[in-house]
Design a protein around this nucleic acid. Sequence first.
DNA 1: TTGTAGGCGTTATCAT
DNA 2: ATGATAACGCCTACAA
Lengths: 333, 333
Amino acid sequence: VRGVRLSDLAEELGLDISTVSRALRGDPRVKPETRERVASRAESLGYMPNLRARALAEGRSRTVWLVLPGFEDPVERLPASFAGRWFFERDYDLLLAPHHDDPRIYARILGRLASGGADGAILMPGPSARRGDGILAERPLIESGFPFAYLDRSVPGVAAPVVTTDNAAAGAALAAAAFEAAAARGSPLALAIDAFDPGRNPVEAARSEGWRAGMAERRVPVLASAGASGDSAGAALASAGPGAAIAIAASAEATIVGARLALPSALSSKPAFAAAFDEWDGKDSAFKGAFIAIQDFEAMANAVASLLAEGLASGAPLPEARILVPILGVRSA
Amino acid sequence: VRGVRLSDLAEELGLDISTVSRALRGDPRVKPETRERVASRAESLGYMPNLRARALAEGRSRTVWLVLPGFEDPVERLPASFAGRWFFERDYDLLLAPHHDDPRIYARILGRLASGGADGAILMPGPSARRGDGILAERPLIESGFPFAYLDRSVPGVAAPVVTTDNAAAGAALAAAAFEAAAARGSPLALAIDAFDPGRNPVEAARSEGWRAGMAERRVPVLASAGASGDSAGAALASAGPGAAIAIAASAEATIVGARLALPSALSSKPAFAAAFDEWDGKDSAFKGAFIAIQDFEAMANAVASLLAEGLASGAPLPEARILVPILGVRSA
DNA sequence: TTGTAGGCGTTATCAT
DNA sequence: ATGATAACGCCTACAA
C-alpha cells in the first residue's frame, strides 16, 4: 500500500525531487509552466504528501491536541467545537484526546505530546490530575518546553496560561439576579445557601466566593449547604417576614435539588430560588425562579486558541497569564 | 527546545546509536548490564523518543482516529469512550476528529488520514457526507488502501466494514413490548404511528422497517407520521373499543412528542404509548408508557475496534462485512 | 553482543 | 529556474 512519492513524480517528469517539492508547495521560484506540469501529473497519479516525513523534516505537524476528561459537561463539549473550527480556519488540525480522568491515560497522552505527537496542546485536567498526589503528569511537557495552556481548570503550581470564565463575577451576578427577582416578587431573600464545593476545584471555589460576596453586599446571610442546620438558619428566618424566601446556588441543577432536599424541613418548605450554571431543566423542581449564568464558551475557545497559536508562531514560551472570560449573561427561567 | 536524541545518549555512553536503540526497546540481544546502563542514563537525561521520526521509520504511528460529527448524541459519545479505552489497553492512541457535518472539514480530515496522519480510522459520517452529492470524500482513503471502518452509519457504495446496532430487530422488539404492555393494561393497540424518517439514513430506515414488521405481525395497522390523517386512521380506531390506544415510535423523544401533537385531535387525545431509543426523559409528555431500546455501545465499540485492529496487525484489507450488534434490551418507563 | 550503513519521504541550504 | 546534498531522528538488516 505504498503511495506515490516525490521521487516518483520527479522521475516521471525528468525533474529533480527538490523542484517537484517546490512546485507543489507553490514556491514562486519555479517556472509557472513546470509548476503546472507537476501539478497535473501529481493529480493524475494521486500524489499525497507523507505527513510523517514532512513533520520530521519541518519539526512540526500543524497539529494541536485538546486533552479533556470526556463529553458530559457543556464546558467540555462546546469549547472543543469552537476551538476545532478556529484551528481549521488557520490550517491546523485540532484533535481531541479524552482521558476519562484516568491518571494513566492522562499521563500517557502528555507523554505522547512531549514526544512530538503535536505542536501544542490545550489541557483540561480532571480532578485526579489536580489533586497533586503522586507524580506530576505535566513534568515531561514542562521540561521539554512544550507549548500548552489550561482551559477552565488548571493544575496548581504549573506555570502555564489559564483561560477560565470569571466565575467569581458570575457568582456575584447570580446573587444580584436572585436578590432582585425575589424582592420584585414580594418574597425577599432571608437566607442564601451556598451549595458549591469550594474544595473540589478553583472553579467551584470562585463561584462560591462570588455568590457569598454578592449576598453579603446585600446583607443576606449565607450558609454552606452542609451547615444549614436548625439554629443559625432558624435565626435568619425568624427575623424575616412570613413570605421570606431562600436562594440556593450550585453549578448543576442536580446539586441544587439535592441540597434543597437535605435542608431541614423548616427551610425546604420555604419558597426557593435557584442559581446555576449553563443548564437548567426545571422538570422536577418547584422553584419560584431559576437564574442561570451562561458561560461564553466561544470566547473561551478563541482565547486559548489564539494564545496557543501565537506561541506556536513566535516560538516564544507561553506567558503565565490568567485570562478571565466574562459570562454572556444571566438567563432566568 | 531540542530534546535529547539517541545519538546524544550513544555518545555519552560510548556506545553506538543502534545499540542504544535496541537497549531501550528491550531487544534481548543487548547485554543486561548495558541495557541497565542505557536505561538509567536515558532516565537521568530525560530522553523521550521522537515519535515523528519513529513513525517515519516504522511506517506507522500506533494511532487511530475516530472521525465523528460531534458529541450531541449518545451514539457519538459512548462508543468514543469505550473505543478509547480499548485502544489504550493495546498501546494505541485513539484520537477524535469532529467534523460537525461540515463537508470541508470531513474531507480534510480524510485527506490527512490518507497522508499518514494515522494508521487506521473509524468513520461516523454526517448526513451531508452520505448524500452522495459532490465528490466522495472517502476516495483518497479507498485509493490508498487506508484501513477504515464505519460505525453506526455508512456511506452508500463504499466498500468498507460497517458496525451497527441491529436496528430492525430493535424496532421489532419495541413493537412487541408496546403491544404487550398495552394489552396487559387493558387498552389494546388499535393503531401504530411510524415517526421514523426512513429517507434520512439506513439507521432510521431499519428501525422503521422493524417497527412496522413487528406491528404487522400482531395485526396492528401502521401509519406513517405524516400520513396519519382522518380517514384511514379513523377507520382503524372505529373498529376498536373505546379504551383503544395508539403507539408512536421514533428515535428521539422530541420527535415522538412532535408527531403526537401533529396528529388529528381524534388521535392525539387517545391514550398513547411511546417507543424510542437510548434516552427517555418523559418530562413534558403524558404517555401511558414508554419503551426504550438500549443500544449496546460497548459492544459496538469493541466490534469496530477489534475489526480495525486486526486489519492493522495483519495488513490485510478489511473485509466488507456488515456487523449487526443486538440491543441490550428494552427498558420501560 | 555490538557496530555499520542504508532507508523512511520531505524540507532546506547550498551551488549551478 | 533547477539540481545536488545534507539534514530530520529513528529502525533494522547485515556485518563483525
